[in-house]
């Protein structure tokens, strides 16, 4: 069974849950996989730390929770500090490079990818699409869900009337990720084995 555990963390209002929805929907509706999304729910999930957990698999998912994230995507320092210790040492850490500083002494085997998603979103004059930029970046630097499926999922998941803007945000994130893989970005891609 090929199963990937993904955790997305950030602050309330950053669109963390929507990112999880897009990745989960992309995997199981627009790609040929199984996906389960769970989220921290309740008053404690608002305002401060907020997280979504997505399990993606080739087979029916039994246990719905993320135990040891293979991929962690963080949009806030707090989420990074809190969730990085849970990660698989060979996992992939995706982070917003302007908002998050990596803690020292990360396992060397941990793959890291940074993107200035806030700056990119501001260039699009809509700071709120920062999560969609991150999803585009995720599509490029991981191979869990097909990028075309994620693109369709963005279109199907965002509020009606905002599809065009969000697709542009997705493409910008995707392009940045592809450049990162090719080693063309200023942000560091520490390792990819």
């Amino acid at each position: 069974m090929n199963t990937t555990e993904i955790k997305i963390g950030g602050l309330g209002g950053q669109g963390v849950i929507l990112s999880g929805m897009i990745i989960g929907r992309g995997a199981c509706i627009f790609d040929d996989k199984y996906a389960t999304l769970t989220q921290a729910f309740g008053p404690e999930a608002r305002g401060s730390a907020c997280s979504a957990q997505v399990v993606i698999s080739d087979e029916l998912i039994e246990y719905p929770y993320v135990e040891q994230p293979d991929i962690l995507m963080v949009l806030s320092q707090e989420a990074c500090t809190r969730f990085v210790p849970e990660m698989s040492p060979t996992g992939t850490l995706i982070y917003e490079g302007q908002l998050v500083k990596l803690p020292p002494s990360l396992p060397e085997t941990l793959k890291r990818f940074a993107i200035p998603a806030t700056r990119i979103a501001e260039e699009l004059r809509r700071r709120m699409v920062v999560n969609i930029v991150m999803v585009g970046f995720f599509a490029a630097v991981t191979e869990v869900v097909d990028a075309a499926a994620l693109r369709k999922s963005v279109e199907a998941s965002v509020p009606p009337g905002t599809e065009e803007l969000n697709l542009i945000a997705f493409e910008r994130g995707l392009a940045y990720g592809q450049e990162a893989l090719a080693g063309k970005t200023s942000e560091s891609v520490v390792s990819r084995k």
């Binding site: 929805m21 199984y34 996906a35 999304l37 769970t38 998912i61 719905p64």
Partner: peptide, 10 residues
């Protein structure tokens, strides 16, 4: 239950 109610799947 709360988990089933708030869990999202296909």
């Amino acid at each position: 239950d709360e988990v089933i109610g708030h869990m999202t799947e296909k």
